[in-house]
Nucleic acid binder design. Structure first.
Length: 594
RNA sequence: GGUCUCUUAGCUCAGCUGGAUAGAGCAACGGUUUUCUAAACCGUAGGUCGAAGGUUCGAGUCCUUCAGGGACUACCA
């Protein structure tokens, strides 16, 4: 049981005794004492003044006195206005270190087989390479899956590849028209970049044709519909759906190029999936559900045969679920894949890591599933995250205003290499290890930068200002870890170290560090509840800062008092372990040296 | 027009279910290396938390209105 819970119980029974109330621990709220006051935990007495019938100071004092009689976990307390500040005995924190320093998976919940969760993320289109927005998606999905695992859930991940549709046909058509048989080998371009190049080429010609048509007197709207290249792309989509041999061959070939490219990027990002779904396999799935909904009168059909659902009672609009020509739309296939996913993984929750531009879509998806009486409806959860914006606004692939994922990763590695070389601490290490280190540090900076922001909020990325390596950054925390490891290497074996708690003096800085360590399980829990890696980032940063202060002010290896030295070594060990563990939840590795 | 969402230091962001004098990092300025890695530590400066009302003993946090951004509102995905 956490110390906070013990305090709450004690407070409840104290209040019950003093004021004849019937409170339980759950009714009691305590918080961490503000840095400016003495104390570890604070109990605010204002809400209890009516029952105590005394002024705030008197009430707090009375509760504090009675608490001291009841329990011995506090060394002292003080009262400021209506705030009762409680100080925990040092012995408690020292015992915590003694017990936890050798605990495996400190901070993680025990596996709980009751809840299985499926996390879908990445879900790229196969007509263009990944950009910064996709990186945020991938890192979030990976990290949330890790955080949920740490909270004891059984977690699976999947990637729903959007490999069909008009956008894919655009790249295909442009390649067929203008490609002259260019391949990733002949062009020495990564496959996804090659395909993306033709997507841009399509758009260029499309725009030219529109301009020409407008010149001939068509309206812009008409021109967009009648541009020959667009008509041809639509024709290509039709051929694809009819299984036209040549079209399918080109489609398969170009998709293979893209997948090979994506795999390289995924490997750099360190993400992987338990299962891939392809829309080309699943896009027809929803039609049965539409029929089912028609039979149940959840959906209705218009004269033109199109199928709709009326969600106006829930404050949403009427929504098309099947086109008049019987082909499926986005929501049709999502209804199908939702069912498929729950069936495949037998999970209670299905999390979709998808941008907040699709909030409406997922609201509709869940409502429809509920109306259809699907048992899994309430398990659908849209983990909606904000867009990454550039100073000039949203990224747009077609217009080339994107920060390319591969370029950015390469930049980060290069910056890491430059910084490392400039500091000169790693001179003489072998080249392969150095390359790994540059990757570790570069990705540490990038991942931390993207994950520390609350997922729900949009975030700003300015390419002109490079991502920092100092301060509240991944490399700072990695560096903290490396410094600890250096101490531990020089300390010899510490596995069997023990210390007598009564022979250790605890400084204010040391205590702050211990309290931070103690809070790791809470951070993991809260991050799981909110599905927010940012909570882990903040926690680990504060831990690293607390450690850096400690490192600056206290000697470890040169400490003469053997108990004190042992205590500090174990504190170092646990700190390194928690940094390692917390960063693993973010998908960031920590180096032994840097 | 409607729905949703955001607005905290020059910049990028924290701020848990309402609690004490609103916090970090970067940038700026100043200090710290004969001692375990200075990618560090310590300090100075920087704020009417978009605006106005309201609820409360107590509001950056909850409610209402307004202003300004953004997204969605497709027989695109």
């Amino acid at each position: 049981m956490m110390i906070q819970d013990i305090i709450k119980e004690q407070l409840a029974s104290t209040l019950n005794k003093l004021y004849n109330t019937t409170l339980t621990a759950q009714d009691i709220a305590i918080e961490q004492t503000s840095e400016d006051f003495e104390g570890d935990f604070t109990f605010v007495v204002f809400p209890y003044l009516k029952t105590s019938r005394k002024n705030p100071e008197h009430t707090a004092l009375e509760i504090g006195n009675e608490l001291s009689v009841q329990t011995e976990i506090f060394s002292t307390f003080n009262v400021v206005k209506g705030f009762l500040n409680l100080v925990i005995k040092d012995e408690f924190w020292l015992n915590f270190i003694a017990q936890s320093a050798n605990t495996r998976n400190f901070g993680f919940a025990l596996p709980n087989s009751a809840e299985a969760v499926l996390v879908e993320y990445s879900s790229p289109n196969t007509n263009k390479p990944l950009h910064l927005g996709h990186i945020r998606n991938n890192l979030l999905g990976f990290s949330v899956a890790e955080i949920l695992k740490a909270n004891g859930h059984k977690v699976f991940t999947c990637n729903l590849v959007n490999d069909r549709g008009i956008h894919i046909c655009k790249s295909m058509l442009a390649w067929m028209r203008y490609g002259n048989g260019e391949t990733p080998q002949s062009s020495e371009l990564k496959g996804d970049h090659l395909v993306g190049k033709y997507y841009v080429i399509f758009d260029k010609h499309y725009k030219q044709e529109i301009a020409a048509l407008i010149e001939q007197g068509l309206s812009e709207e008409e021109a967009k519909k009648k541009a020959p290249i667009m008509l041809e792309a639509q024709d290509l989509l039709l051929k694809w759906e009819q299984n036209h041999h040549e079209t399918i061959a080109v489609w398969k070939m170009m998709n293979e190029w893209v997948y090979a490219g994506f795999e390289k990027t995924y490997a750099k990002l360190g993400v992987q999936f338990d299962k891939y779904y392809y829309e080309s396999n699943t896009y027809l799935l929803g039609k049965e559900i539409v029929q089912e909904g028609l039979n149940n009168k959840v959906f209705y059909q218009k004269d033109d045969q199109s199928v709709w659902i009326d969600l106006s009672a829930e404050g949403l609009d009427q929504k098309l679920v099947l086109r008049g020509d019987g082909t499926s739309v986005y929501i049709t296939q999502d209804l199908g894949t939702a069912e498929l996913k729950f069936a495949d993984f037998n999970c209670n929750r299905s999390i979709y890591v998808v941008g907040n531009e699709q909030d409406y879509h997922f609201k509709v998806l869940q409502k429809i599933a509920q109306r259809l009486g699907k048992s899994y409806a309430d398990g659908i959860f849209h983990l909606s995250y904000g867009m990454v914006e550039l100073p000039e606004g949203k990224m747009k692939s077609r217009e080339g205003t994107v920060v390319d994922a591969d370029d950015l990763i390469a930049d980060m590695e290069e910056t890491a290499a430059e910084t490392t070389k400039a500091l000169g601490k790693m001179d003489g290490e072998n080249e392969a290890d150095l390359q790994t280190l540059y990757h570790t540090i570069g990705m540490g900076a990038l991942k931390y930068f993207l994950l520390k922001v609350d997922p729900k909020k949009k975030m700003m990325f300015n390419p002109a200002e490079s991502i920092d390596f100092q301060g509240n950054t991944g490399p700072f925390i990695q560096y903290t870890h490396a410094r600890i490891k250096s101490i531990l290497r020089n300390a010899g074996t510490i596995e069997s170290l023990t210390f007598a708690t009564d022979k250790v003096q605890l400084s204010a800085i040391e205590k702050r560090l211990l309290i931070k360590l103690y809070q790791y399980p809470l951070a993991v829990k809260e991050a799981g509840k909110d599905m927010s890696p940012g909570i882990i980032c903040n926690y680990v940063f504060e831990l690293a800062k607390a450690y850096s202060s400690f490192y600056h002010d206290h000697q470890v290896l040169n400490e003469q008092n053997a108990d004190q030295r042992a205590f500090r070594l174990l504190t170092c060990k646990l700190t390194a372990q928690v940094i390692h563990s917390g960063f693993k939840l973010l998908g960031i590795t920590v180096p032994e040296k840097m």
